[in-house]
């Protein structure tokens, strides 16, 4: 059953085939966060992967910067409905980090400074589809957008791209993270509009 809203449609947003269903284009970079923006100094920053054997592999900021850095051009889609097309990031591929950490289990929980978590299958963090990103449009990543470094998994809704990321723990099963316990989808494919429970 179609419900029409009388007289709606005079003002329309630009549409684009690269826009997933229910999304609109924005030139801004809005913010979705559940609490205060944590202040993290790169001097204290550390990124740690804990694999299924409990082995911890950690990188300091300088060690991360010494790894191969990739330029990433991608569209991003937030569950709150804005999308940005053709954004530019720089970061280290998760393939590099997962290899070094001997990733051995299928599910990852991303942990952030500030305590937030989000779950992502390891497969979605692999094969050139995810990065630890620290630069956006040629500038160091702003704290309110997740700086000094955030996860970048642009083929999923952007809450999966955990801001202020500090590590991954690997698990045999897919457990809900913070957002996923609070109403958002376990996987979050924007093309399938997997927004909510």
């Amino acid at each position: 059953m179609a419900v029409f809203s009388r007289g709606f449609g005079a003002r329309r947003r630009e549409s684009d085939p690269k826009l997933p269903p229910g999304q609109y284009l924005t030139a801004d970079f809005p913010v979705l966060s559940a609490g205060p923006t944590p202040r993290v100094d790169t001097a204290d920053w550390e990124f740690t992967i804990v694999n299924g054997h409990g082995e911890r592999t950690s990188w300091s900021w300088d060690e991360l910067m010494a790894l191969p850095i990739e330029d990433v051009g991608t569209d991003i889609h937030c569950v709150t409905r804005w999308s940005k097309l053709g954004t530019h990031w720089r970061g280290v591929s998760l393939d590099t980090l997962l290899d070094a950490a001997k990733a051995d289990l299928p599910y990852a929980m991303a942990h952030s400074y500030g305590g937030y978590t989000t779950n992502v299958p390891v497969e979605d963090l692999s094969n050139g589809r995810a990065w630890i990103a620290f630069e956006f449009e040629g500038e160091p990543l702003d704290p309110e957008h997740g700086g000094p470094a955030r996860l970048l998994v642009p083929h999923l809704y952007f809450w999966k791209s955990a801001k202020w990321v500090r590590g991954l723990t690997l698990h045999p099963t897919d457990e809900p993270g913070f957002w996923e316990q609070n109403g958002y989808n376990m996987y979050g494919d924007p093309w399938k509009e997997q927004r909510y429970w």
Binding site: D28, P30, V31, L32, A34, G35, P36, P38, G114
Partner: peptide, 13 residues
């Protein structure tokens, strides 16, 4: 405590 502060932000049109 940061954990005692719940935020909801809005932006965009």
């Amino acid at each position: 405590a940061p954990g005692r502060i719940k935020t909801e932000r809005f932006g965009g049109a």
